[in-house]
Amino acid sequence: MVNLTMNGLEIAFEKGASLLEAARFFGIEIPTLCYNEGLNPYGACRLCLVEVGAPGRSRLVSSCTYPVQPGLIVRTHSARVLKARRLLLELYLATCPSSKIIQDLASKHHVTRVRFKQKNEECILCGLCTRYCAEQMHGHAIGMVGRGAERRIGSAFNKKSEDCRLCGGCSYICPACQARCQGPDEKSAVCGACLNLAPPCLDDHDDAMCYLDPCAACEMRGER
């Protein structure tokens, strides 16, 4: 067990765990977009920022990737943390306003205005879908492509990957919108949609779990 201070409370938590896990265990709510208990932490959305270190020498780190350390002083809701979190949420709203999860988080944090130029992106590159595909399905059908502003989710050579088992997990887990089912149009490399399946999904891939909800294929067959 590791002893540390969180929001003024002396706590003990298991070695190797992250600050986010410790905070959530003790009932401290920290918002996240790119975190999922079943996947390796990625530290990309930056919403789970917490302030670590002694006052005056502290810094902000992503709590999902920062391990509990003996004697660490952690503040999960300091003014500095909240200021950064709010601006990031404003930036998320300005980038990807159509996500309900982002809208809800923004309103919870009293972010009521967007001062940046409004965009309408479909992906926040949180990496949940790619990690889901790699870690849970061992598929590696999709991944991050490019660097910096060019970064996007895609498959090798922009072709629908043969490793994709059409489990639909990527669209299920997506907090934004890109990996949502796009219908029968094959322009998206992510899935290409259940409507194209013949015979539909689980008949062929009984071991693959289907997460699509609602699934158009099921609806077509009248199973739902």
Binding site: Y42, G43, A44, C45, R46, A84, L88, L91, Y92, I124, L125, C126, G127, M144, G146, R147, G148, A149, E150, R151
Partner: peptide
């Protein structure tokens, strides 16, 4: 161009 692009911030 040169940011790796992982962190949203």
């Amino acid at each position: 161009e040169e940011s790796c692009g992982a962190c949203f911030s």
